[in-house]
Design a protein around this nucleic acid. Structure first.
Lengths: 137, 137
DNA sequence: TTATATTGCGCAATGA
DNA sequence: CTCATTGCGCAATATA
């Protein structure tokens, strides 16, 4: 994802002032040769001067983009966290409901058993006293 | 948690040196005032030279700490994401169970009604033909 | 006060 | 080319 300076990390120096105005910048020449603003400006391939307004503009834009991206990232993280809480709540709700339903079922089954006994006492002697059932996974 | 420079966001820095030999120096004078470097040598209180080995050491350590901290942060985020999936799964499981229980309940209730009708036909003439019930929230 | 942990920010390389 | 991401270093803070 990131490639550390493969051959030579030439950059450096900047340090600018945060508030006032003293962007007195540094010269910094590329090769040392004469070409300052040659005819064919191949602005690519070169590290570009930090003084160039082209450079400054690009930097500022990137800074904005970075800020935006990070904000977005942070937002997403927060949303995810919120989602966790939401899901936890819903989980509790569901478990409560399960508990309720289970209890209701239990009551009905008991009634059934009771009734079965009545029937047994009245019409049938006794065969098997089972009223169990298994729970599904 | 964090306190963004309320009055002046002075920061800006950077300058990463790829090569060991770098900076020649950056004076950096306070503004004008009187106490710049008080009588004795209070190595603190000032911005410290970037060439000091003390400085370099501190920087390197901080860089390590930053790296560590960010790694940790990233880990946590990932865990949170995983937690979301886990909760979503459990939620589905619970909903399935609810569905099952609801169905079971429905069956039992129908049996009850059926039975009730039988009883009515056998022992009781007829009172009310209602077999409705409401569902609890 | 010192040491480490967090956080915001700019830079540059790289991905889209 | 422009914008979005991401690793990294710096410095200001926050914690310990």
């Amino acid at each position: 994802m990131n490639v550390p300076p493969p051959t030579s990390p030439e950059d450096l120096s900047d340090v600018q002032s945060g508030s006032p105005a003293t962007p007195q910048l540094v010269p910094l020449n590329p090769g040392g040769g004469g070409k300052a603003t040659p005819p064919s400006k191949s602005k690519k391939g070169q590290r570009m001067d930090r003084s160039s307004d082209e450079y400054r503009l690009r930097r500022e834009r990137n800074n904005m983009a970075v800020k935006k991206s990070r904000l977005k990232s942070k937002q997403k993280a927060q949303d995810t966290l919120q989602r966790v809480n939401q899901l936890k709540e819903e989980n509790e709700r569901l478990e409560a409901k399960i508990k309720l339903l289970t209890k209701e079922l239990s009551v009905l089954k008991d009634l059934f058993l009771e009734h079965a006994h009545s029937l047994a006492d009245n019409v049938q002697p006794a065969s098997s006293t089972s009223g169990q059932e298994s729970d599904a996974q």
